[in-house]
Write a protein that binds this DNA or RNA. Structure first.
Lengths: 114, 114
DNA sequence: CGATATACCTCGCCTGTCAAGGTATATCAG
DNA sequence: CTGATATACCTTGACAGGCGAGGTATATCG
């Protein structure tokens, strides 16, 4: 099962930052690791991924540099900044909070008496 | 803390259907109950709510009818259809699945060895 | 030599959110 | 009686993120 793009939206930035918080990486690798971790459930389309990189770099959350591969295609590496780490912290908190809310709202047993 | 609109997106339909699965209701009441349940964390803006009703009704997931209030402003009630109940089942499943994936991806302790 | 994997990128469409604006009824304080 | 607030509905247009479709280049393997 693949996840609707409307659900992906809003998590893209956090997911990328979370990956980069582990280690510097590049587009292709990040994409593969996301697929691997989720067993192909969650997939960022390339266009989505690269627009996200532009957005995050412009916002100062990541910086990029070219790798010096001696063979194969060139890679553009990304590195998370302090400001990016802080953003990530806040996105994780938002995720926990929204998860709780959505769980309540989607739960069939939950009820109000208003 | 309020939740970013990019996270709301993708859950709006499911949340509305979940509310209507309990009982027929109308826009204003649904909105208030969402706020109450989540302690004002999750808030659908009116414009968003009413666009969602149009969308869901056009898709055949809900039907509407005017209430016969003897006093106060008129209310348009919504009722979930069989097709809507089926959609809700599938949205709940998608939520569980995406929650698991995003949890893994946002988790700081999780790692790959690729 | 053609297919496949790695690796990058952009353009333009589509869709859902929402600020801003509007309508109408009822209640309550001053 | 007047103004504020709550209830209750609605539309328009701007905006932003996802992504289909298209493109480039290198390396490997049958």
């Amino acid at each position: 099962m693949s996840i609707a793009s409307d659900i992906l939206r809003g998590h893209t930035d956090g997911i990328i930052l979370a990956r980069l918080c582990k280690k510097d990486s590049y587009g292709y690798e990040i994409n593969k690791s996301i697929q691997k971790i989720t067993g192909n459930t969650y997939e960022l389309k390339e266009a989505t991924l690269y627009t996200a990189f532009r957005r995050l770099e412009e916002a100062g959350y990541i910086v990029s540099y070219w790798g010096n591969e001696l063979t194969g295609a060139r890679r553009r590496y990304y590195s998370i900044t302090d400001s990016g780490r802080e953003m990530l912290r806040s996105l994780r908190a938002e995720w926990e909070e929204s998860k709780r809310s959505i769980d309540k709202l989607m739960d069939e047993s939950f009820d109000t008496d208003n």
